[in-house]
Design a binder for these strands. Structure first.
Lengths: 232, 232
DNA sequence: CGGGCAGTTGACCCCGCTCAAGCGCGGTGG
DNA sequence: CCACCGCGCTTGAGCGGGGTCAACTGCCCG
């Protein structure tokens, strides 16, 4: 975790419309004021219930956000990828973090101090509107997630999660999903037991829908997976 | 559904900090421009997937927001009560409604045209900040809901829902919860089958935790219900 | 009086969770 | 270099929570 100001904000601007809303001058200030770190796989950036000091911007890597149940089991709420910000919910509503942020793939992360971020929102209405849209999109996703977990069975949910991962992270040159999760993490995402994920992945493989190689997953039949996820 | 401009915005201001952020002048314009309706129990204000023309403000009554699963089953996401706004997610992110809004108790509702609401957000940074806080709070609630549905069993969830209803709607003079839902609606809220809700309510009653009288529910032992909901 | 809907109860059974055992592999230390 | 350990993965067995189906009741309303 070296504490440098290496990351060019431009990298994030490329990925995220959010930053197109702020002026050249604001960018300069932001670049000066932000605080960059790199985190290794497994590092925790902040924990559920803790107070955080600013909004994080992910320059590269993957971060998972999860809540921990009473029995200690992780429920993954969402992922962040390059160019995305996180932690803004706690800062803007002035609450403690409601999830833990843990690094899935080595990440380069910038911290924008809370006061500065809040000022940006207050003084730049375009930026404020972008933040609103962002939280509204997350809210829409969360609502859909609630419906899925409440009403779909595990098989349907797993198919849907695989498609969501495909949509969000794409595939590498070999055609594998560009995110490599343990079976346990997949279970925490689907909201089921690890063993159930293993059995169902094995079924999907048997049916020729996917190819498995350690943590690499290749989707062979998107249409069929879609059908399964929709309970057709 | 008489189309009048009867409702005094002041009623909503009393209930909701949101409107304290807008100026006297903005209030006058709002009062002039808004469009009021009353809806009967069971009326649908808008449906999932439809485009809505503005943001709704609930003057009085109760509205439920639900999504419909592939098999037609309602999953209730949240309720709105007097003074609260809804529909802002669709307007601000310029998407179709992601839930259906249905009247649970006769409601008086004002419609604020989309353009006017957006302008308000764009020109009044205090108001914008309030909207951000609102959506962030809803987002936090939704995340908690995901954890609960994914990891708690039906008994724990039902206990939690009863406590949430108590917190949000309070009790009337007889000590009953101030919201009267069918068993089916309760099931749609908990994310389970109607029969399961009935059996568990009956268990709670047998254990002296609640009193049932038709759709009226009285909570007798909040502490014990809390324990059940937390899996202690 | 009859139809329909909400509520209730019982019977059944299947999905998926838990527990346990075994396997493969990579890292560590003797 | 090998032995050992631990972690992630896999598979099987068992069972219980809770979903589904069906029948019945009570109540409201036409």
């Amino acid at each position: 975790m070296d504490n440098l100001k290496l990351n060019t904000c431009e990298t994030c601007f490329v990925h995220n419309d959010l930053f197109r809303k702020i002026t050249k001058e604001e960018i300069d200030i932001l670049s000066y004021i932000k605080n960059c770190n790199t985190y290794d796989k497994g590092d925790i950036i902040y924990s559920e219930g803790s107070r955080i000091s600013g909004v994080y911007c992910l320059n590269s890597g993957i971060v998972k956000h999860y809540k921990t149940g009473n029995d200690g089991k992780e429920q993954i709420i969402r992922f962040s990828k390059a160019g995305e910000i996180f932690g803004y919910r706690s800062i803007l509503s002035n609450e403690v973090a409601c999830t833990t942020a843990k690094v899935v793939e080595e990440s380069s992360v910038c911290l924008i101090p809370a006061a500065h971020f809040t000022t940006l929102v207050n003084t730049n209405s375009n930026f404020a509107m972008s933040i609103i849209k962002l939280s509204c999109r997350e809210l829409g996703d969360a609502n859909q997630y609630i419906l899925d977990i409440a009403q779909k069975n595990v098989r349907e949910r797993l198919a849907e999660i695989l498609l969501l991962l495909h949509e969000n992270f794409g595939i590498n040159k070999d055609g594998d999903l560009n995110i490599f999760l343990t079976r346990e993490e997949l279970a925490g995402l689907v909201g089921t037991a690890t063993e159930s994920v293993i059995r169902l992945l094995s079924d999907f493989k048997k049916d020729g829908l996917i190819v498995l190689n350690k943590r690499k997953i290749k989707l062979l039949n998107l249409k069929k997976l879609k059908h399964i996820s929709q309970n057709f």
